[in-house]
Amino acid sequence: MSRQALMRLAHFSLAVLLVAFGFAASATEIPLSERKSGYEFMGPQSRAMQDDDTANPGMLSVFDGEALWNAKTGATNQSCAGCHGDATQSMKGAAARYPAFNASRGRPLDLEGQINLCRADRQQASPFAYESRELLALTAYVARQSRGMPIEPTIDARTQPFLDAGRAIFDLRQGQLNLSCAQCHDDQWGQRLAGTVIPQGHPTGYPQYRLEWQSLGSLQRRLRNCLVGMRAEPYAVGAPEYVDLTLFLMWRARGMKFEAPAVRP
């Protein structure tokens, strides 16, 4: 065989190996066309509650957030609107692109992280606590401006390592029950965990109103709930692991419709 032919053979074998290996590693990934939002697992009453702004309890936070958007605050006495203007225009699609890379931090930030960064840098105000009324309200208001738009976080050389880190967490068996996110949400979705249908775990509707919580909650809160269920040590509130996981989940849901503030059982 000529050297060239050998090289070609080597490349070919490598490609076959890569395909075979890639297939094995992602054999359980849900095909894009079979993805379903948690919305599709809900009954008609909960769907109606989400769809009707006058019935969706999350809208109270959205209105609360609109007021905060326009309120001047901090040492600079600036409002969000002072920099960004009309959110219905300037924030259209923003939430559907987060987490996004932040050059000054050298890593992606989630929407909550970006809002608190604006507070610190632009308003010179103290950051809002995670799950505080204010942070949920501002996040809900910004997120609402992306409703119906496709989820599309930017994956490039800068964000790829964080996407990979998020995927590694998703695939990690952890906690006393030794389960991974993937085992439930890729492999067992649609099955019943006791009485609860396991959704595919898409982050399409956050912050969202959970009837079980009787309040609006962030994606981090949801992720902590799953970790606690696995009897795993939850990552600290605001930890970068949640942002990496969120980036992975958003990428996994790429192209799906953003639906915040969603309602879930």
């Binding site: 990690l172 068996r173 952890q174 906690g175 006393q176 030794n178 606690v228 009897r231 795993a232 040590e233 939850p234």
Partner: peptide, 9 residues
């Protein structure tokens, strides 16, 4: 062989 087990367990 278990990782990141919650401290209570």
């Amino acid at each position: 062989g278990l990782v990141r087990v919650a401290s209570a367990y």
